[in-house]
């Protein structure tokens, strides 16, 4: 991994008015084509981390370096689908291109492509309220992909889904990641999900939020049920769980 990172944080610290330290001295780098998962307990600054990476928040200290320059090179998927309830599936997916004022012909073509990628063909005219939770999340993913981003940031996107749907979405996300060759950062509460998806897992600790460990996942792709039932899968989960338990203990004086 000698290529220039797509996105990197250099000793970034951030705190909110009122003195709550959200992140302290966080350094990390995302390399082209990687799938990095971030796990950690609530309050470890994962959402702040994403906001900094997306450029929505400027850090109080440290530096964010990024090869992503223009809007559309970075896609984002939130915890909730965050769709416009009054707009159709197609219009929701088209939103980033409309905000970027792309020509109508391009918008139509790209929406068709994104709809196909997430398997929503036939639902273009539906409204979000008429879809299931999993389908709404697909719309959100299609919306993030419609600009053909180099980098995709995801904030616990499947947390609200039932387990079966979540496993299917995980597999489909991996297939898309491989097909498109994009770089992914995936925040999750689920170690299961992290080990299944990622090439590398970062473990964060709370108060102040910091990265305390980094675990590589040596398995190759494609991954499926065979990987979920592999002994190495269970071992990695166990290792991450131990790290998390360690992080939750109060820091020694």
């Amino acid at each position: 991994m000698t290529a220039t990172p797509v996105l990197a944080l250099h000793e970034v610290s951030h705190h909110y008015p009122g003195g709550v330290v959200a992140l302290e001295q966080v350094s990390l780098a995302l390399h082209p084509g990687e799938f990095v998962a971030v796990v950690g307990p609530s309050g470890c600054g994962k959402s702040t981390l994403l906001s900094l990476l997306a450029g929505l928040t400027a850090p109080v200290a440290g530096r964010v370096s990024s090869v992503v320059r223009s809007p559309g090179e970075l896609g984002m998927v939130f915890q909730d689908p965050t769709l416009m309830p009054w707009a159709s599936v197609a219009e929701n997916i088209a939103l980033p291109l409309r905000l970027m004022r792309r020509p109508a012909g391009e918008v139509t073509a790209r929406v068709v492509e994104a709809v196909r990628q997430v398997g929503l063909a036939g639902f273009e005219a539906s409204l979000p309220a008429e879809l299931s939770g999993g389908m709404r999340m697909r719309v959100a993913i299609a919306r993030a992909l419609v600009t053909r981003p180099r980098l995709l940031l995801m904030d616990e996107p499947f947390a609200a889904l039932d387990e079966l749907t979540r496993e299917r979405m995980n597999e489909q996300l991996l297939a898309l990641w491989r097909e498109l060759g994009i770089t992914c950062l995936f925040v999750t509460h689920s170690l299961y999900e992290a080990v299944f998806l990622a090439t590398r897992v970062l473990v964060m600790a709370p108060r102040p939020g910091r990265v305390i460990a980094e675990v590589a996942v040596p398995a190759g792709y494609p991954r499926g049920d065979a990987w979920r039932s592999d002994a190495a899968f269970a071992a990695l989960r166990g290792e991450l769980a131990a790290q998390l338990r360690h992080s939750a203990e109060p820091a020694s004086p």
Binding site: S51, L56, P71, G72, L74, F78, T82, L95, P96, M100
Partner: peptide
């Protein structure tokens, strides 16, 4: 979240 999205794409 939608406001953040609008900012992300330079709306």
């Amino acid at each position: 979240g939608l406001r953040a999205l609008f900012r992300l794409y330079g709306g």
